[in-house]
Simulated assay, not measured.
Amino acid sequence: MTASEFEFSADQLAALLDEANHAPWESVRAALGGVEGQPHPRIGWLTAHLAVTKREYWGLIAAATGAPTPPDGYGLTRLMAWEVEAARALDAGALARSVTHAGERLDVAGLLRLNARHTIWHAGQIAALAGRPRTA
């Protein structure tokens, strides 16, 4: 598949991120909503990892497009809301700009899709761990 087979507008990419981050089912918010009591320690690592990688993605986007980077003090919840609006603000030219992530060249739109896939991947892991009791 080529990048041209997946042409999304900024609004569509923002909606994709919003669903990955906030949908009532199958999102980070939904997965975290299922955590009760003392969370499994891996959940903390996963949420920190998501925040770090989202900041990395947006650093690459900012360098390629001049878009802003997320505010330093934002934790994962505020970062997820921020990135939806930041994605919505990108124009078609910005979405087509090239970035390199993990040694792979892709356009900004492709990086935003990767961000959504990565988010959902970890949301599933969080959901799987949400009901597991913490072990010492």
Rank of each mutant, 00 (worst) to 15 (best):
E56Y: 09
E56R: 11
E56L: 10
E56D: 15
W58E: 04
I61F: 05
I61D: 12
A62R: 02
A62E: 02
A63S: 01
A63I: 01
A63R: 00
A64R: 02
A64H: 12
A64V: 05
T65K: 06
G66D: 06
G66W: 01
G66V: 07
G66K: 01
G66L: 01
G66S: 02
G66R: 09
G66T: 07
G66H: 04
A67W: 06
A67E: 05
A67I: 08
P68A: 07
P68S: 08
P68C: 11
T69E: 09
T69S: 03
T69R: 12
P70T: 13
P71L: 13
D72W: 14
D72L: 08
G73E: 12
G73F: 12
G73Y: 09
G73D: 10
Y74G: 10
Y74N: 15
Y74R: 13
G75M: 05
G75N: 09
G75Y: 15
G75C: 05
L76T: 07
L76Y: 10
T77M: 12
T77A: 13
R78M: 09
R78C: 09
R78D: 10
R78K: 15
L79I: 04
L79F: 07
L79A: 12
L79C: 06
L79K: 15
M80D: 01
A81D: 09
A81Q: 10
A81L: 00
W82Q: 02
E83D: 01
E83W: 14
E83S: 09
V84F: 08
E85A: 15
E85M: 08
E85C: 05
A86H: 14
A87H: 05
A87P: 03
A87Y: 05
R88H: 03
R88W: 00
R88Y: 01
L90H: 08
L90V: 02
L90W: 03
D91F: 07
D91P: 11
A92Q: 03
G93I: 00
G93L: 02
G93Y: 01
G93C: 07
A94H: 00
A94D: 03
L95S: 01
A96E: 04
A96S: 11
R97S: 06
S98I: 06
S98Y: 10
S98R: 13
S98Q: 14
V99S: 13
V99Y: 04
T100K: 10
T100P: 06
H101S: 15
H101I: 04
H101D: 09
A102R: 15
A102K: 10
A102T: 09
A102I: 13
A102Y: 14
G103I: 05
G103H: 12
G103M: 06
E104C: 07
E104N: 10
R105S: 14
R105F: 00
L106M: 14
L106P: 13
L106E: 10
D107G: 09
D107N: 14
V108L: 08
V108Q: 03
A109E: 08
A109G: 10
